[in-house]
Amino acid sequence: MTDTPATNIVFLLFPGITQLDFTAPAQALSRMPGATLVGAAANREPILTDSGFAIVPTHDFASAPQADILCIPGGHGVADALGDAATIDFIARQAAGAQWVTSVCTGAFLLGRAGLLAGKRATTHWAYTHLLPLVGAEHAKARVVEDGNLVTSGGVTSGLDFALSLIARLRGDAMAQAIQLAIEYDPAPPFAGGHPDRAPKAITAGLKDHVYDAAAARMEAALTSA
């Protein structure tokens, strides 16, 4: 019997992160045999999430091990992180040695700022997909998009789908299915409206008006700034 390969899974952490972008794939990936999870930030002070509670990083950028799988979550804090040179440098350095480079939600734009999406097919949260060309990417309309060793996923909950897909690639379908069963990921949402293609138009319009039009404009401004 061959030994299970060790796999370092490094998640970028930053203020304003959407916690489920991080915790959903982390929950699945942590159960993959051989996995070691790392939460890396500029320092090891607690990181305030968008949910009001904090996450404590395991490493700072300088001490983080080389990732086999690099994962960049999203959140409203991405717009600020785009202007942080240390964060972008960390992503670029880690990506250069990673087997897989991945993102959840608007984390795709941090990959893009690090020069990793040029000429690639990619996805992100539905409210921001029109901004992908600003980082040289072509939007592919799918929940999980793979292009070479780059894997991007849509908004928030799609991080769990990406994680299970990657586990299947690395450890086989049976292992991914076992982990899916262990965490009882058996979606049965009360409404068939988790994407604008299926949500009532009034709900989509209201959410854009109250949240995402302004958020996307802020992201665009951050992406187009020097």
Rank of each mutant, 00 (worst) to 15 (best):
Y128L: 12
W126P: 04
V101L: 02
P187T: 09
L117N: 02
G107E: 09
A79L: 11
L131W: 00
D209W: 11
L37P: 01
T87V: 14
T152F: 12
G107F: 06
I179N: 03
T36Q: 14
G77H: 10
F14T: 09
A92Q: 08
L164D: 11
A216K: 07
F11N: 02
P190F: 14
D197C: 08
R44G: 01
A54V: 00
P200T: 10
D186T: 12
P25S: 10
A163C: 10
R169N: 01
I47M: 04
G172V: 12
P57G: 09
N149I: 02
A118Y: 00
A215K: 10
A215W: 09
A81K: 04
A62W: 05
F162V: 06
Y185T: 07
C105Y: 03
A137R: 04
F90H: 04
L37W: 05
A42K: 14
D186W: 12
L223P: 05
P73F: 08
G77R: 11
V56G: 00
V135E: 03
N43M: 04
G107P: 05
Q19I: 14
T7R: 13
L110I: 11
V78K: 04
R218F: 09
R121W: 03
A182I: 05
D173K: 14
I47W: 10
A217F: 02
P187L: 08
G154E: 03
A64H: 00
I203L: 15
G97T: 09
T49V: 03
F191Q: 12
A127K: 05
A95I: 07
G172Y: 05
T18D: 15
H76T: 14
V10D: 07
A40W: 03
C71S: 13
A214C: 00
A35I: 07
A41P: 00
A6E: 13
T204W: 14
A222E: 06
T124G: 08
A41V: 06
S165H: 14
G115M: 05
D80A: 15
A67C: 07
H195T: 12
